[in-house]
């Protein structure tokens, strides 16, 4: 589904990603971990198409197409979704109107007719119950005045509504208390399926107790330095990142 080859990217002239290689197949759940500043969020930004990042080398193929050639909206229309670490508040745009616009733009891209209001509301209700999103928040302005937990749950609700092929969760667990974390994780788990893939970016192993990954990758200094299974996450939790850093530096000096 997603193939990242030797991806290099910089922001403000500073090299952040230094040769990422990653293959994600349908149905898989990948966790990206790593210390602060290792490039985790930069990777999600580059994949989603944030404009201040410049790709200097490498390629990303998503469902057979060159992802990096596409505008952010086209990436979304092709089936990529990123749940933001810091969802943006947009006063004056209602949550529902926003979702309807997004959904219909995606449908139009695939030559599908716009959803009738009735169908849209039915879908909304179904997904809102599925991911346990407060119905009162749907008519409010997008994220305006939402608590941190509500914002993250709104990201998962949007994910459910837009039904992407690949979802990137960028530190969705950051700032969540344990109850909110459980709800968010339960929502994500309900959305897992054989034809969908997830990339979960997190600093903490805690999230991975609730969302169990098939693979864990450790990002350090702009590269994936280690790949393993969920046990790797436990090991990191126990030993921290320092042993990995040392391992990397030893390799470099050899």
């Amino acid at each position: 589904m997603l193939t990242i080859k030797n991806l290099h990217a910089e922001v403000d002239g500073k090299q952040i990603l230094k040769g990422i290689n990653l293959e994600i197949r349908k149905g898989e759940m990948h966790a990206i971990m790593g210390p602060n500043g290792s490039g985790k969020s930069s990777l999600s930004s580059v994949l989603a198409g944030r404009e201040n990042y410049t790709v200097t080398q490498g390629e990303v193929i998503f469902e057979g197409k060159n992802l990096l050639d596409m505008a952010p909206e086209d990436r979304a229309r092709e089936g990529l979704f990123m749940a933001f670490q810091y969802p943006v508040e947009i006063p004056g745009v209602s949550n529902l109107h926003f979702l309807k616009t997004a959904l219909n733009e995606i449908r139009a891209y695939h030559n599908l007719p716009a959803l009738e209001s009735k169908e849209f509301l039915k879908l909304t209700k179904e997904k809102q119950q599925l991911v346990d999103f407060n119905a009162n928040l749907m008519n409010r302005s997008l994220n305006e005045g939402f608590s941190g937990g509500e914002k993250k749950r709104n990201e998962v609700f949007q994910l459910a509504m837009l039904d992407p092929k690949l979802a990137i969760l960028d530190e969705t667990d950051s700032g969540l208390d344990i109850d909110a974390l459980r709800i968010v994780a339960a929502g994500v788990n309900k959305l897992r399926s054989a034809d969908k893939a997830f990339m979960v970016i997190t600093h903490y192993q805690r999230l991975l107790e609730y969302i169990v990954p098939d693979f864990v990758h450790v990002l350090y200094n702009g590269q994936i330095v280690k790949t393993g299974t969920k046990e790797l996450a436990l090991e990191l939790e126990e030993k921290g990142y320092d042993w990995l850093k040392e391992e990397v530096h030893q390799k470099e000096s050899v």
């Binding site: 944030r50 404009e51 952010p72 943006v88 947009i90 006063p91 004056g92 997004a102 959904l103 733009e105």
Partner: peptide
């Protein structure tokens, strides 16, 4: 203009033009 808000809308599949007009309509909403 908030570039971050624009990116947020675009990342959900809303075209740049529609996203801008959504934001301007939102600003004018009051």
């Amino acid at each position: 203009f908030s570039e971050e808000a624009l990116f947020y809308l675009r990342s959900r599949g809303i075209g740049a033009e529609a996203a801008k007009s959504l934001l301007v309509n939102a600003f004018a909403f009051d």
